[in-house]
Amino acid sequence: MSDRMTIHLSVWRQAGPESSGAFENYTVNDVNEHMSFLEVLDVLNETLIRKGELPVEFDHDCREGICGACGVVINGVAHGPQKRTASCQLHMRQFKDGDTIVVEPWRADAFPIIRDLVVDRSAFDRIIEAGGYVSVSTGNAPDANAVLVPKDDVDRAFDYASCIGCGACVAACPNASASLFTASKIGHLALLPQGDPERSHRVVAMVDQMQKEGFGDCSNHAECEAVCPKGISISSIALMRREYMKSLVSSGG
């Protein structure tokens, strides 16, 4: 059995979007290396509840790194120190006895804080609604093998399509840009023949919506790629920009 660790946590507490927040300090004993980071928060919350205090609110669901619900900034890094790992998949063997861990919500104007570590990411849904789909109603589809798609194209499309919509890219970006999120959907659909007919309209609509939501622009810091739990490349952003330029040229704009 692994050694027990004592972990100090400095957690952002905020009662609501309009309240001012502050860090509160806690200590959790009996942490072991097999625990996930969120399980340490669970243990902390059990202690707080028993003491009659309010538990720390945080979003989480699948705890397998695929739903994208969880996500906190851990010691200044979105999703914490381990590469390509969502907060729920981060395990305590990444830390050592006596460490202090600073835990904050995603911080961006377009992601208002709901409570403690919970933020409102509905802006992402609206970016998808602006054009992140193929316009094909149920029943209209030709046979699945009627259109051939080169394996390399579908593999690249998949790399972009693996985005889990967690928002770490926004949290890590000095401009709070949603470029990696938006570009990954544009890249996914632009690389497939099924997405081709609408590609020109799609890129403009989604990029415009991203700006309307109050996300910043991309200035090539690449912090988003560094924290992305799915390792999505910023080549998608370059692709999005090419698509956007092509669209302006072709529409005479």
Binding site: Y133, V134, V136, T138, G139, N140, A141, P142, D143, A144, V147, V149, P150, K151, V154, A157, F158, A161, H188, L189, L192, Q194, G195
Partner: peptide, 14 residues
């Protein structure tokens, strides 16, 4: 399968 492919679901291909 037809519907999903038409939506752009990137199923594995040969």
């Amino acid at each position: 399968i037809d519907q999903c492919v038409a939506q752009g679901v990137p199923f594995a291909r040969e």
